[in-house]
Design a binder for these strands. Structure first.
Lengths: 362, 362
DNA sequence: TTGAGAACGCACAAACATGAACATCTGGAG
DNA sequence: CTCCAGATGTTCATGTTTGTGCGTTCTCAA
């Protein structure tokens, strides 16, 4: 590789990504790190880049950085837009989504205003009104029951003076209208899990889930995949009750689920929620079965699955990316707002499966 | 190999890659390094290239490098990435998609390289190989039959060293993998049309479509909506033949479709393709019916619908936005390439309905 | 604050590219 | 058939570029 070609590659990389790491680029271009350092030194002397420890950044990025720290935030750019986000809770599932949105907000230099509703419809409405009245430029919302036609929330959002993106919930097809959505494809997540178990030789696979927004999707993907693989006869779905706060009545339900599994000679299960899954795994082991030899388990959610006594194979919904993509979409709409129309976008992101001990094949 | 041929090869190489290395080219052309040096010396004296240690660079690149040392602004105009796009045709439907992609490319300062395949599977494979070998940074492709598991194209794309976005076609769910897609929701488009007609009092609605990639989706949305509205009993689907080029045998099929409509007391139709729809509208009027009073018509596609004798209400697939969104997605992936993973994204864009005379309610 | 690990850059060695001089090849004219 | 001119290949002394070992410096996290 000729020196100029390397220089070209370096500058291209900088323009495309804003920065480069010597170790990575040296692998990609198949030249030694020293050579790259010499190249960077030369290009820096020509004012084409700025060297930093580990690599280099483009002059544009360097300037921005300087401005940012130089006047210690006095010159910090004012946010270009304010995006409201309404989530049912900030305890479960959503923290990651919020973090994704917040990462995107930082990148796009816009402000994120958060409201939570504790799964109350009235609260959703109130928060939405508050944010819109408060002058947000765009709104991201997760109505806990989806957006139903004719509901007051629907009326409000359909006429909202700002773009609205529904996050992680469906939009009734009849409404469609201008409301866009970004969501995970949980049916696909269930499919992933079932296929994973089938590949490991399981034919009798059960599903357990408490009532949650994702449950219907999970059930859908589960049944569809079982049917497609010719295992429909063994479908076992168990709806777990949501225990009252503080009560550990969930254990009862898990025990009943376990008994059913034994009774129907089920050898593997997919269970919604990794906390429940961990409790269930403990129960299974307590009853004298080995995981994964006698019973395989896939958790649907991946917050703590890695930390179970037997690390659990888990389906990880793309929470971070979800928030990130939703905020970007919302921001795009704010920017285009008065420009020519655009097609209504429905985005779905696919979960991934992380294999751990609870399904390692024999 | 004669001197002129070598000179030609040298200049071609420079134009393609911007620079060349003597050792590599001497192997490839099977001539000694000395000969190449003499060639380069001559071509340099003619001002056709600039020699550097180890090889040569094109004058364009050399100038850019030189100017680069003066002002950093010079490099702003060089494309930061090259995105390949493979479409089955550039005559029908895709021109708009391509325009959308090209608009996005301009905004993002990247180069778009287009290949068309004339609906040939071999050609799809060949073009994809060519573009990847040619060093594109990302690839957008519309395989005419979708991406089928196990096909050579699938094998190629799944292992491609660059991000791949499938445009306006499905990706087999089992494949999923890392391949992303952007597409129109044609089922929703059909739903839009049917609902529009039902709102205007029609109960017996027919669908006509020739064999095309969108046909199954149209049929799906049509049947689903008819069923949901309790009109399932009146489903009439007519598959039109694709006429040979030049022949106007399509008229026969349209006549048969018309007869069927009359026979079943159908009062409205959704027809794929606005050219066919226009021909059909003419035929209906010729037979003495009035549009929209006696018969309502919605065209699926909106290139020329506005220019029919009776301007046609049409469903407009979001072609421009499709290309735009696909290129942006692809570009994003190129930028993130080696950074942390991201969730696989499936985007669907909703068509819109443009109301015109052919369905104005009485 | 400290320490592990990564990145840095000097100095030297190895590898490689260069071009002059000379050897070899080729095809056509004498 | 021989010779010759021009093109191409080879050798080698020289200059340039690249890779490596190693002590120093930097960064991040405990």
């Amino acid at each position: 590789m000729v020196a100029v070609a390397r220089h070209d590659a370096i500058l291209r990389e900088l323009e495309l990504r804003g920065s480069l790491a010597i170790t990575q680029l040296s692998k990609r271009l198949d030249v030694s790190a020293m050579t790259l350092r010499r190249d960077l030194a030369e290009l820096e002397s020509r004012g084409l880049l700025v060297r930093v420890h580990g690599g280099a950044v483009s002059t544009a990025v360097a300037k921005q950085q300087e401005r940012g720290s130089g006047s210690a935030g006095a010159m910090a750019r004012r946010p270009v837009a304010t995006i409201g986000m309404i989530a049912p809770t900030a305890n479960y599932y959503f923290p990651q989504v919020i973090r994704g949105a917040s990462d995107a907000a930082r990148e796009l230099n816009c402000r994120l205003v958060l409201g939570t509703t504790n799964y109350s419809e009235r609260e959703e409405l109130r928060q939405a009104e508050r944010l819109i009245a408060g002058g947000v430029d765009g709104l991201m919302i997760t109505p806990h029951n989806g957006l139903v036609e004719g509901s007051p929330l629907h009326e409000l959002l359909i006429d909202a003076p700002v773009p609205v993106v529904v996050v992680e919930r469906g939009v009734d097809e009849r409404i469609a209208g201008r409301i866009e959505s970004v969501r995970s494809d949980h049916a696909y997540g269930a499919e992933l899990a079932v296929r994973h178990l089938v590949e490991r030789g399981h034919g009798r696979i059960a599903l357990a889930a408490r009532e949650a927004a994702t449950t219907p999707w999970l059930l859908d993907g589960y049944e569809r995949t079982m049917a497609r693989l010719g295992l429909a006869g063994h479908v076992r779905f168990r709806s777990l009750p949501t225990p009252a706060v503080g009560a550990d009545s969930a254990i009862d339900a898990l025990e009943r689920f376990y008994d059913e599994c034994v009774q129907h000679e089920v050898t593997a299960a997919l269970m919604l929620g990794d906390v429940d899954s961990m409790a269930f795994a403990d129960l299974v082991i307590e009853r004298g079965l080995r995981i994964p030899e006698d019973f395989a388990l896939v958790a649907y959610d991946d917050e703590f699955s890695a930390f179970a006594a037997v690390p659990l194979t888990a389906v990880a919904p793309p929470k971070h990316d979800l928030g990130y993509a939703a905020l970007r979409l919302c921001f795009d709409r704010v920017r285009q707002h008065e420009h020519a129309g655009h097609a209504v976008t429905r985005m779905s992101l696919l979960p991934t499966l992380v294999e751990r001990e609870s399904t390692r094949s024999a």
